Lab assay of single mutants.
Amino acid sequence: MRVFPVYAPKLIVKHARIFLTGVIWVKDLGRLEFEKGRFLLPRKSLPKVKQAILELNELIEAQN
């Protein structure tokens, strides 16, 4: 598990694309899981977490 002390979308996306499957922890967002290079949306999450995951997945799609 990698810990990101700040929310840096480009760096987080780079990590997810390299490792494809895993878990990261982002300060103020908490634990985020990714599989096959995409972030998974938890069943229950705060609106800011949901927005961050959608933003990260959009960045991943834009890079493909």
Rank of each mutant, 00 (worst) to 15 (best):
L56D: 00
L29H: 03
I12V: 04
L59R: 05
N64H: 12
A52C: 05
P5M: 14
Y7E: 02
I60A: 06
V13A: 13
K50S: 08
E58D: 09
L29R: 03
P42S: 07
E33S: 15
F19G: 04
L20A: 10
V6R: 06
L54S: 09
I12L: 05
P9A: 05
A62S: 12
A8G: 03
K36E: 15
H15K: 02
R31L: 07
L20K: 07
L20F: 06
G22L: 02
E33V: 13
F34D: 00
T21G: 07
I12S: 01
K36Q: 12
S45A: 11
I24Y: 02
R2L: 15
R17T: 14
E58M: 09
V49C: 05
V23I: 13
N57T: 03
W25S: 04
A8T: 12
I12D: 01
E55C: 05
E61W: 09
K48F: 08
R2N: 07
A16M: 06
G37Q: 06
K27Y: 14
I18A: 10
Q51L: 09
R31Q: 12
Q63Y: 10
G30R: 01
Q63I: 09
L59M: 13
R43D: 08
N57P: 00
L40S: 07
E61C: 05
A62F: 12
I60L: 13
K14A: 14
I60V: 09
E55Q: 10
A62P: 06
K36L: 11
G30A: 03
I12A: 01
A52K: 09
V23A: 05
I18R: 09
E33G: 09
F34L: 05
A52W: 03
P47R: 14
V3C: 12
N57E: 03
F19W: 13
N57M: 02
I12P: 00
R17M: 13
Q51T: 09
G37I: 06
T21W: 09
V3D: 06
L59W: 07
A52Y: 05
K36T: 10
K36A: 13
Y7D: 02
V6P: 02
K27R: 05
S45C: 07
F34V: 04
K44Q: 10
L32W: 01
K50Q: 06
K14F: 06
L29C: 04
L41D: 08
K27C: 13
L56E: 01
K27W: 14
V3S: 05
F4D: 01
R2F: 15
E58V: 11
E58K: 12
E35G: 06
L41Q: 11
R38M: 11
F19V: 15
F39L: 02
L32H: 01
R31E: 15
I60G: 04
V23F: 06
I24S: 01
V49G: 02
K36C: 08
V23Y: 10
K48A: 07
L11S: 12
G22R: 02
P5R: 14
A16P: 01
A8I: 14
L56M: 08
E61Y: 12
K27L: 15
R43W: 04
I53M: 03
H15W: 05
E55R: 07
W25V: 06
V13T: 09
A16T: 12
M1W: 01
K44R: 12
E55S: 08
F34K: 00
Y7G: 02
R38Y: 14
K44G: 09
K14N: 14
R38G: 05
V49T: 06
R38P: 01
K14W: 07
V26I: 06
V13E: 04
G37R: 04
V13K: 02
Q63P: 09
E35A: 13
E35H: 11
I18N: 11
R2Q: 15
R43M: 07
G30Y: 03
F19Q: 14
W25Q: 06
I60P: 02
A16F: 03
V26K: 00
D28L: 06
I18M: 14
I18D: 15
I18E: 15
S45Y: 09
L40P: 05
A52M: 06
L59N: 04
R43N: 10
G22C: 05
L29T: 04
L46P: 14
K14D: 14
R43S: 10
L32R: 00
W25N: 04
E58A: 12
V3H: 15
K48L: 08
P5A: 08
I53D: 00
G30P: 00
A62L: 11
A16W: 01
F19A: 15
L11G: 06
P42M: 07
A62M: 13
H15D: 03
E58L: 11
A16S: 09
Q63H: 11
F19D: 06
I12R: 00
V3N: 09
I60H: 04
V6M: 09
N57R: 03
I60T: 06
V26N: 00
L54A: 11
D28W: 10
E58R: 13
R43E: 11
Q51W: 10
A8K: 08
A16Y: 02
K48I: 08
P47S: 10
P9Q: 04
E61S: 11
G22P: 02
R17Q: 13
R31G: 03
E58T: 12
L56I: 05
L46W: 14
A62C: 09
L59I: 10
L40W: 04
L46I: 12
V13R: 02
F39H: 03
Q51R: 14
L56F: 03
F19C: 05
E58N: 10
Q51G: 11
L41A: 11
V23C: 06
K10F: 14
K36S: 14
A8M: 13
V23D: 07
